[in-house]
Amino acid sequence: MAAGTEVTQATGAQQDTAQPRKAPSRFWARVRYQLLNVFAGLAFLYLLVPIAVVILFSFNDPPGRFNFTWHKFSTAAWQHPFATPGIQDAVVLSLKIAFLSTIIATILGTLMALALARYSFRGRSVTNFVIFLPMATPEIVMGSSLLTLFISISFNRGFTTILIAHIMFNISYVVVTVKARIYGFDRRMEEAAMDLYANEFTTFRKITLPLIMPGVLAAAMLAFALSIDDFVITQFNAGPDITFPLFIYGAARTGVPVQVNVIGSMIFLIAIGLMAVNILYQNYRGKRDAIAISGAVRKAQLAEAT
């Protein structure tokens, strides 16, 4: 790497002049060290304060239609999260789209990831580029071009077009996530299975699939999150249908009901919870596997010894 050679040159030049290393005053060094930590703390504050505001204002009892000023503590909205007309249909539609698009995009994306990680074939770099492109295109361009397609072929917009769009923008993210997992695992496991007379299908089902499953699950979670959160592409292709983000957009100018904050907070808490469970599970699995492996090694050593 070019940067690496530059490093050695730079340090080499320093050495020639051979100035004694000045010890900076300990006080200033400490200040400088802490300054960076304080800055990072402020950055976290910037990241998290709006979320705190969302959750806090889900307990508000606003006097008017707008939920922008704090008035009174209330749990009314939490007790009746679907009390606002239209909000339930919007949430249900968002969930339906998210489930379906996640399933289809995960299947299509995983197959592509397997092909890319496993085979050397003609057109590989083109394929990689095709997968990369949707992630590097602004949503508004994807949304508007898809809308132009549907207008041009006089295809009515609604549930189907939203689903099509969500699968489209999810595929690339699934491929990238699953591919990273496939590159990370030991191919000899499959070879061992085949050597033990498992056929291709059994090997895939018993070895490959369980091994890439964490990657597939992570990809599915990402796809679900992207789908349920998407606004821009959905707005262009929804026609008369209203998903949860579209509902918020519609309410933004006339007054956002507290229920929006409640459902937003629920989604946030569920996502955080799932993530925590995932981390704990990974830790547990890591420990369990470590124990299993060390047990197997010991057994092998014993067998060798006898």
Binding site: L47, P50, I51, V54, A225, I248, N261, G264, A271
Partner: peptide, 19 residues
């Protein structure tokens, strides 16, 4: 963490903060 709340909701939160 911000990605776990909806894009529009967190932008509306900024509307509250900057009100």
């Amino acid at each position: 963490a911000p990605f776990f709340t909806n894009y529009l909701i967190r932008t509306l939160a900024w509307e509250t903060i900057l009100a």
